[in-house]
Design a protein around this nucleic acid. Structure first.
Lengths: 201, 201
DNA sequence: CGACGATCGATAGTAGACAATCTACAAAAC
DNA sequence: GTTTTGTAGATTGTCTACTATCGATCGTCG
C-alpha cells in the first residue's frame, strides 16, 4: 500500500532535519551552518552534509556564498505576493485532482493532523504548528496522484514558510485547516478550494 | 558595468552544460548519466559532477534512483497545464517589475537575442532556438531587480522546456518574441504582458 | 585615519578506497 | 516450463585525507 518512503540516504535524513530546524525557527535568519560542525553533530562525513546543504540552498532556505559557507536565508517581503499566487495555483491543482482519490483512510489521516495542529496551537509550539501545517498540505499534494507536483510545490512552500513562521499570526492555523478538511469530508470541492485559498496568504 | 556572472564553480559550469544538452534534446529522454563517465569527460573529479546532477534532479530535468544512477527525465503531459500557469505568473510578475528598469542597453540586448532567435528558427537549429528563447525570458527575469525570482523561475521553465523542445511546433518562436520586445520598446506594459501570455503555452 | 597585506577560516575540488545495493543473467528447485 | 535463488558486475553512497582558493579580519605602515 502507500508506504511512507522513509528517508533512505544520509543526505535526505540530514536535509529533512535541517529543513525542519529552519522552518520551525530553531535556526534563525543569518545563522551560519558549517559543514564540519554538522558532520560531527550527525556523526557522518562532510560529503552528504554538502549534498544536503546544496539541496536546501536550491529550495531557497539557505543562501550560499562560494568558499564562504551557507547561512539561513533572509525573508524577502517583495517576493511574498508572488509566492502566495504560485502556492495557491499548485495546491488548487493538487486539490482538484486529489478529490478523485480521497478515501476514508486519507481523511482519517487528515483528521489526525488537524488534531495535532490544534494541540500545537494551544501549546503555542511553533515547531509543531509548522510541522503539522505542512504535513496537512503535503498529504493533499500526495493524494493528487501526480508525484511530479511535490518537487514543484516544496521550494515554493518552503520559501513561504520561512516568512510565515516568523512574521505571521499563526494561531488561527487550526481553524483554517479544520475548515479545509471539513469541506473535503463533505465532498464539497468548491468549499474546499475556498478554504484552501483563505488559508494561503 | 553589468558583467555577466559567468559560472564560477565547476559545479555550475557542469550543470549549465548538461542542462543545455538536455533542454536542446542532445540528451534524449531516459539516457543514463554516469558520474565516472562525466567526470572523465569534463576532466574533473566526481564531487562536482554529483553536485551538478543533484541540482539538475531538483530542477526536474533528471530523475535519480538510489544506487542506480540518474536519467534524463520523462515528460509528464498532465503537469504541463500547471506549469504554464505557474510560468505565466512568475514572468508577468517579473515583467511588471522589469518595466521600472528597462534601459536602451537592455533593449539592445533583447534585440540581439531576438535576432539570434530568428536565425536559429530559419536554420531550424533546435538547440539554438531553445537557448535564445530561454535567454530572452531570463533577461526579463534578471531585469526585474529581484534576484530571488530566478531560482523560483528556473525549475518551472526547465520542466516546461523539457516538453517544449520535443513536442511543440516552435518555429513561431521568433515572431512571438519579437512582439514581446516590440511592446517593451514602445513602453506598452499591457501589450507586453499580452504578448508574453501568448508566448507561454 | 586610511590603505595595504598577511593570516585565518571555511568551502571547493581532487584522489582513491570501500560499502551498499540495484540489475541482469544464469542456475537450481518445483 | 515457470519460478525462485544466487551470483557477478556495475553504479552510486559514503568516507578519509589532502590541496587550492576565496572572503573576512586584523595588524601594520604610510
Amino acid at each position: 500500500m502507500s508506504e511512507i518512503p522513509v528517508a533512505r540516504t544520509i543526505r535526505e535524513q540530514v536535509a529533512d532535519r535541517i529543513r525542519a530546524d529552519v522552518l520551525s525557527g530553531r535556526l534563525t535568519e543569518g545563522t551560519s551552518l558549517r559543514e564540519h560542525a554538522l558532520a560531527k553533530q550527525y556523526s557522518v562525513s562532510r560529503a552528504p552534509i554538502r549534498d544536503a546543504l546544496l539541496q536546501l540552498t536550491q529550495e531557497g532556505l539557505l543562501v550560499a556564498k562560494p568558499n564562504c559557507g551557507v547561512r539561513v536565508a533572509a525573508v524577502k517581503p517583495e517576493t511574498q505576493s508572488l509566492l502566495v499566487g504560485l502556492r495557491r495555483q499548485v495546491e488548487e491543482f493538487a486539490l482538484k485532482n486529489a478529490f478523485k482519490h480521497f478515501t476514508d483512510e486519507i481523511i482519517e489521516k487528515l483528521d489526525q493532523t488537524v488534531a495535532r495542529l490544534r494541540n500545537a496551537c494551544e501549546a503555542e509550539d511553533l515547531a509543531a504548528i509548522v510541522e503539522n501545517d505542512m504535513a496537512l498540505h503535503r498529504t493533499i499534494i500526495d493524494t493528487s496522484g501526480n508525484p511530479e507536483v511535490l518537487p514543484i510545490w516544496l521550494p515554493i512552500v518552503s520559501r513561504m514558510m520561512l516568512h510565515y513562521g516568523r512574521h505571521s499570526n499563526i494561531m488561527d492555523s487550526h481553524r483554517e485547516h479544520a475548515a479545509i478538511v471539513s469541506a473535503i469530508r463533505a465532498g464539497d470541492q468548491k468549499a474546499a478550494i475556498a478554504a484552501l485559498r483563505a488559508n494561503i496568504q
